[in-house]
Design a protein around this nucleic acid. Structure first.
Lengths: 151, 151
DNA sequence: AGAATATAGTTAGCTATGCTAACTAAATTG
DNA sequence: CAATTTAGTTAGCATAGCTAACTATATTCT
């Protein structure tokens, strides 16, 4: 398992890039997550809420769990917190087992505000880059989205 | 607070890019963190350990807390877990209040293995890209490092 | 020197978030 | 219509975030 070379053969020179990308993502979120605490909503709740608000409408609990890569019991509790806080509404579906989860107006507002705060400082850092680099980052972010779809 | 325009003036058109970059980072880590669980070491412990192993040598608890953007009591408990698991060693310094935290050989090994696993799937996704795109992702990573230094 | 203050870490207690195991209720299948 | 499968919840455990309050060591001030 400590044999780095065999893994490099599998991943090619991509390993180095992957490692740095991973590290950059960690440090990026580590900085931004501090601002999330201002919203008074936990990080998992905020993330689940963002799927409901930005991810295109209502979902079942199982779909939410899948999107967030957590187990159903974990999502069940996260949703319970969101409902208690009045940020998400539980609805019924044709299938009596499934629930329909939808963000409330308050939930949508809270999420947008938090998102605003979070992204603000990152946007400022980007602004300080030279024009050319800024455009390049925008361009490459698209590419990154493509890579993530393959994960 | 819901006035997006005023923020866009502050951050310029960078806001859109920042938002997407932020989202990409979230999704990236959401996928990779699942594999971290295989190591049997919690995410906060793993991250703190990585600072000690990859961040260039021993640190005090306060420095670790700063690097991880958490409060001292939180880091105190994270370190306690790492020491209990034999991954980190507590040492003394000239200043009797400060402690010197250093990764053990086992800690270093565990971290490298986990890092390997984590990055593996990302590296594979990168490998499936056309050569040109792969180089562009590498480019983005460099730019991203620059941006992070400004955060 | 000795008292007052500041700094580094820890402990205690709260909430949130991950998990697995075991349960309930509804739908589907045989 | 009984057996199985599926969706979600409940219970119980560990980790990880916080603040408040404490201990111990250093530093500063009289």
């Amino acid at each position: 398992m400590t044999d780095v070379k065999s893994k490099r053969l599998a991943g090619g020179e991509s390993f180095e890039t992957a490692d740095r990308l991973h590290s950059a993502a960690i440090h990026l979120l580590r900085r931004l997550r501090v601002r999330d605490r201002e919203s008074g909503v936990g990080p998992a709740q905020l993330s689940a809420l963002s799927v409901l608000v930005l991810g295109g409408g209502p979902r079942s609990l199982g779909e939410l769990a899948e999107a967030e890569q957590v187990r159903p019991p974990t999502m069940s509790r996260i949703v319970a917190g969101l409902v208690r806080a009045g940020l998400v509404r539980r609805g019924k579906t044709e299938d009596g087992r499934r629930i329909r989860l939808e963000a409330t107006a308050k939930g949508t507002r809270i999420l947008q505000e938090g998102r605003q705060r979070r992204v603000e400082s990152l946007a400022q850092a980007l602004s300080s880059l030279p024009e050319a680099d800024r455009l390049r980052v925008a361009e490459l972010t698209e590419l990154l989205d493509q890579v993530l779809r393959k994960l």
